[in-house]
């Protein structure tokens, strides 16, 4: 492909100030329902964490709280040792946190490439109106830099051929990939993935799994929420299991999913009694 030449060489992950995540006694009440109830967990840098649990167990709520889109009722969250409870979502994003959403959020009026570029816009040149008006040469050079980063991300997801397509013309699985590409364009140090492979077929899932492993080896800390337990067991370093807003298990994936509490949460009480 001709686009391949535009790809920038992979930057090594910055060694200093790598953030880890520390959730302390987090609780969220949504209209009287305890979506999260006293959850504490830590995420060490450079590793791939899985967050499992049945529907409604609080996984997405926890991701929303970490990205500050949702306020904790009590408790605190630290990123890289810094309390983020008084930070805005955009400030947390600028600390190097990127995320994908459970429901795809792509702009229908933008091309795939532009959607991906959105991920790096702020860290590379922000959205200052004055600069936009007064320094066209400066914004032009930044635009090129953002484009290069977006193209590199699209390349990793094999989406370069689709760069000019409007996202709504693509299948749901491909849209999810664009969603991941946007997060990668931000070159995050901490990446939150909310069901990145929903709607994908087995091959595509394996592809994403391999990608996440490569990212892990590059030093990107990841928290993965996924329905596909097999994928989680295959690739995660560590698994946390939530049920009804509580943390019910934590440990190495293979051991973790055999714990009685986890089996019960997934298969129900009756099933376990029968077993």
């Amino acid at each position: 492909m001709t686009h391949a030449t535009a790809r920038t060489p992979e930057k090594p992950a910055p060694a200093a100030a790598v953030p880890s995540l520390d959730v302390r006694d987090a609780a969220v009440n949504l209209g009287g329902v305890k979506a999260l109830d006293g959850v504490s967990l830590t995420v060490e840098s450079g590793r791939l964490y899985g967050l499992a649990g049945p529907n409604g167990s609080g996984k997405s709520t926890l991701l929303a709280a970490i990205s500050r889109l949702l306020d904790l009722t009590s408790g605190s969250i630290l990123v890289g040792g810094e309390d983020i409870m008084r930070r805005s979502p955009f400030q947390v994003a600028r600390m190097g946190l990127a995320r994908t959403f459970q429901t795809v959020r792509l702009m229908p009026q933008f091309s795939v490439l532009e959607n991906a570029m959105l991920g790096a816009d702020q860290s590379v040149y922000g959205s200052s109106f004055l600069r936009q008006w007064l320094m066209p040469w400066w914004t032009r050079s930044r635009e090129a830099r953002v484009r290069a980063r977006a193209e590199a991300a699209l390349e990793r997801l094999h989406l370069m051929d689709l760069r000019d397509q409007p996202p709504l013309s693509l299948s749901y699985g491909v849209q999810r990939k664009v969603e991941i590409a946007r997060a990668l364009t931000a070159e995050p140090r901490l990446l939150l993935l909310d069901e990145p492979t929903a709607g994908m077929n087995r091959t595509e899932r394996d592809e994403i799994g391999e990608l996440l492993l490569r990212l892990r080896n590059e030093g990107v800390t990841q928290v993965l929420v996924e329905h596909d337990l097999k994928m989680m067991v295959d690739i995660c370093d560590h698994l946390y299991v939530l049920d009804s807003g509580h943390l019910i298990a934590s440990g190495r994936p293979t051991e973790c999913i055999r714990e009685p509490k986890v089996v019960e949460a997934y298969l129900g009480r009756g099933r376990r009694a029968a077993a």
Partner: peptide
């Protein structure tokens, strides 16, 4: 892109900074 994004999804634009 940021301005269009605000209209499409506030959560998204906040999450990209």
């Amino acid at each position: 892109r940021a301005l269009v994004g605000i209209k499409a999804s506030e959560e998204l634009v906040m999450s990209v900074g």
